[in-house]
C-alpha cells in the first residue's frame, strides 16, 4: 500500500515536472520569436550555424540515407516478390522515405549531432559566465545565441531531409536494379506513377518542424544549465533524449494532421 502511494506520488511529480518544463520551453520559443524579428539581424552568426548544422551533417546524412534506401529495397523486394509486385519496390521505398524515414531519421541525426552540441555550447557559456558577459554588455543572449541556431536548424533540416531522400532513392535504385533484378525502366516508370509532389512536401514540412523542435530544445537546455560541468553533461543528455522522443511524438501528430490537408 505504502509503496503504491509512493509510486503514484513520484509518478505525479514526474508528470508535473515535465509539464512544467514543457511550459517553460513554450515560453522560451516565444522569446525566440520576439528576438528573431528584432534587429540587429546577425547574418554572420546564422551562416556559421548553417555551416555547422547543415554542411557538417551532409556526410552522415548521405551515409544514413544511402543505407536506409538500400536496406528498404532489400526488405520490400523479398516480400513483394512473393506476390509478384517486385516492380513496386521503387515507389514503396520512395514514398516511405519521403513521408517518414527521411524527415524522421534526419531529425534524429540532427538531434544527436547539432541539438546536443547546442546544449553543450550554450551550457558551457552559461556556467563560465559568458552568457552573463553578453548580457552585461547589453547584448541579449537569446538573440545572440539561440536565434541563429534555431533559424539555421529550421533551414537546414528540410534541406538535409531532401538530401536523405535523394540519396536514399539512389541507394534503393542501385540495389533494386543492379543487385536484385528489377528492370531499370520499370523501376523508374513505377516511381513516376506512384510518387507525387505532395508526398515530398509532406516530408519537407515535417522536417521543418523537426528542425525547430530540436534546436529549441537544444538551446533551451543549454540556457538552463546551472551546476557546472556536470550540469552541461546533463543538459546535453536531456537535449538528445527529449529531442529524439519529441521528434517521434511530433511525427505522429504531424502525420495525422498532414494526411488530411495534403
Amino acid at each position: 500500500m505504502f509503496f503504491l502511494l509512493r509510486w503514484v506520488e513520484s509518478l505525479g511529480a514526474t508528470i508535473i515536472e515535465n509539464l512544467h518544463a514543457l511550459g517553460e520551453i513554450t515560453l522560451f520559443a516565444g522569446r525566440f520569436f520576439y528576438w528573431m524579428v528584432k534587429p540587429p539581424y546577425r547574418f554572420k552568426l546564422l551562416f556559421e550555424q548553417l555551416y555547422f548544422v547543415g554542411n557538417k551533417s551532409i556526410f552522415i546524412v548521405c551515409l544514413a540515407g544511402a543505407f536506409t534506401g538500400m536496406v528498404m529495397a532489400y526488405q520490400t523486394y523479398f516480400g513483394f516478390k512473393l506476390i509478384s509486385v517486385d516492380s513496386l519496390v521503387g515507389p514503396v521505398t520512395a514514398l516511405t522515405l519521403a513521408k517518414e524515414l527521411a524527415p524522421v531519421l534526419t531529425g534524429l541525426i540532427v538531434a544527436g549531432r547539432a541539438g546536443a552540441a547546442m546544449a553543450a555550447q550554450i551550457g558551457t557559456m552559461k556556467v563560465t559566465e559568458q552568457v552573463d558577459a553578453l548580457e552585461v554588455m547589453g547584448i541579449n543572449s537569446v538573440q545572440y545565441l539561440a536565434v541563429p541556431r534555431i533559424l539555421a536548424s529550421v533551414i537546414s533540416v528540410p534541406m538535409l531531409s531532401a538530401l536523405f531522400l535523394f540519396v536514399g532513392n539512389i541507394g534503393s535504385w542501385l540495389v533494386g536494379t543492379k543487385f536484385l533484378s528489377i528492370d531499370e525502366a520499370i523501376y523508374l516508370s513505377k516511381l513516376g506513377e506512384f510518387m507525387f509532389l505532395e508526398d515530398i512536401w509532406q516530408g519537407l514540412i515535417k522536417a521543418f518542424f523537426f528542425g525547430f523542435l530540436i534546436s529549441v530544445i537544444g538551446t533551451y537546455f543549454g540556457f538552463n544549465v546551472t551546476k557546472g560541468a556536470e550540469g552541461v553533461g546533463k543538459a546535453t543528455n536531456l537535449a538528445v533524449v527529449w529531442g529524439m522522443i519529441l521528434v517521434l511524438v511530433l511525427d505522429y501528430f504531424l502525420t495525422s494532421f498532414l494526411v488530411h490537408i495534403l
Binding site: 558551457t124 557559456m125 563560465t128 559566465e129 559568458q130 552573463d132 558577459a133 552585461v136 554588455m137 547589453g138
Partner: peptide, 14 residues
C-alpha cells in the same frame, strides 16, 4: 555600456 565588468573566471568567449 557605462559599465565594464571583470568576471571571476574572466568569462572570455572561448
Amino acid at each position: 555600456r557605462h559599465f565594464g565588468m571583470l568576471f571571476q573566471y574572466a568569462a572570455l568567449f572561448d
